[in-house]
Design a protein around this nucleic acid. Structure first.
Lengths: 110, 110
DNA sequence: GCCTTACGTAAGTGTCAACTTACGTATAAG
DNA sequence: CTTATACGTAAGTTGACACTTACGTAAGGC
């Protein structure tokens, strides 16, 4: 999930979307209207953000109101904090965070 | 540059590389030996990280010793801090970040 | 009922990124 | 000078990704 989140915010449009719905709730259409790309494109971005746990939505009639999901952002933030922190102390805890590690292939003397 | 940095850390192998050279200096070969992908692949990752300002190197004979660049990491961290901070106070500064917004589409109360 | 609105989803396309193998280059060793 | 080492770089392949247009569907308005 953290990997997904990092990938998600690597895309400028998605960061933009996060900004828009960080303070207020917006419908998919309202969000899309602020972008040059088409509405389906934004819809797909919203799916990615949702899958990454960075966004939630609420349905109301025919509309979906999206908003940023604080927990997801906190999780990501925490992961990154730890990432920087590594510089100070390399700890065993890193092993937990690194779920994505390809396969342990004998990285030299950690 | 921030965009490059975000993209750079979105790649698992590159995050792994950053971990390896965050506390100590390592040669390209030493870094590469810890991965499943080939040495040229790692060399390319190192180029990406360098271009993103997250890594520097020092030459010694035929070898290049790489290490994480604290300034780059700080810059990225600062950017992200501000990113989260937006949730608390939406400030004029957002306008700078919001370069992407083509026209105001009546998104409520900005 | 019918038509519009607001959306997601399917399907296809072009581009880019991560990877491979093959090669070029500079230092060091003999 | 010749050979081995430690790299980066060139060139090509593959898969993922951001995007498009076309379509399907559920809720309202009439």
């Amino acid at each position: 999930m953290l990997d997904q989140a990092l990938r998600a915010i690597a895309e400028p449009n998605r960061r933009q979307i996060l900004h828009l719905i960080q303070t207020r709730e917006l419908s998919a259409g309202e969000i899309a209207s602020g972008f040059k790309v088409t509405r389906p494109a934004i819809s797909q971005h919203l799916s990615v953000l949702t899958a990454a746990g960075l966004v939630t939505y609420r349905m109301e009639g025919t509309r979906r109101f999206y908003r940023a999901r604080p927990e997801g952002l906190e999780e990501l933030k925490a992961y990154l904090e730890e990432f920087w922190a590594d510089r100070l102390q390399v700890l065993a805890r890193v092993a937990e965070v690194e779920e994505r590690r390809p396969k342990d292939d004998g990285t030299p003397g950690d």
